[in-house]
Nucleic acid binder design. Sequence first.
DNA 1: TAGCTGAGTTCGAAAAACGAACGCAAGGGA
DNA 2: TCCCTTGCGTTCGTTTTTCGAACTCAGCTA
Lengths: 149, 149
Amino acid sequence: MSYASFASLPCTLGRPAALLGERWTLLLLRQIFLGTRRFEDFQSSMEISRSVLTDRLNVLLQEGVLKRVPYQADGRTRHEYRLTEKGRDLYPVLMALRTWGEKWMAPDEEESFHLHHRDCGGDVRAKVECTECATELTARDVVVTPRTQ
Amino acid sequence: MSYASFASLPCTLGRPAALLGERWTLLLLRQIFLGTRRFEDFQSSMEISRSVLTDRLNVLLQEGVLKRVPYQADGRTRHEYRLTEKGRDLYPVLMALRTWGEKWMAPDEEESFHLHHRDCGGDVRAKVECTECATELTARDVVVTPRTQ
DNA sequence: TAGCTGAGTTCGAAAAACGAACGCAAGGGA
DNA sequence: TCCCTTGCGTTCGTTTTTCGAACTCAGCTA
């Protein structure tokens, strides 16, 4: 099968997992959600090699997660990378990672940035919920019914 | 900095993102949540090379995401890989990926497996919520306050 | 005794990532 | 005009990862 062929797997978990599971891609999305938008800023803040950065940005552009938006800098037109609606919808994935990180990777550590709800100041947390009864779910509460694979 | 040094980054999003952002790791976790537990089964279902599979399993063991549990097979003691509590807590990450995949990568496609709430049969969905007011949040509803970096 | 099985390990070849240098277009200053 | 700078990549030779086929090893089973 090889890694690349997961990109065409008929699985709505497998395909995203393969896309975001490529080295640097999750860290790149983190940086984008923290507000970075320009090639130079990605490169210097993450110390990723320029050629790999080019590749990952292009993959996310092709997938429609990012878009290139023109802006003016010292009289010249340049482009920055911004999230599309599809890209913004990855927020729960990043927040789920962070919720897990807070609990398991640094219980007593000062977080490197704080997040709070703009309206009420509350904390932000990812969770899994039943769309019918709104109960919060864990892996044990969910039944898996395979169709393929 | 280089990729490896994100492992020691004081960021509760960056460290998990670097850990799960290594090639194959997310796909391996998917397979585990689908019930795979043995080396041979991982290897054949994902067609990952055996040496990389060994490495990824060891990393997840070291991180405490997986544990090795003995079992009996044809009179011999063998070991299988199972999620720890820390590992099971990654469920929201996988579900967030799947929720995104359902919306953006295959709107009209039959899912390869179906998930439903054991108690009421409802669908499963990841979301981000405010711990104070329980409102569902998007990236736009959240204020980021950097502390370092 | 020989073969089989599960779970790795080894090792040479191929692919991916690294990083320093290069390219390029446009603006600014001398 | 000429040169320097900036932002955004591309190139290319080296290092690191990944691949995949073969090998190991222990304990059944025939």
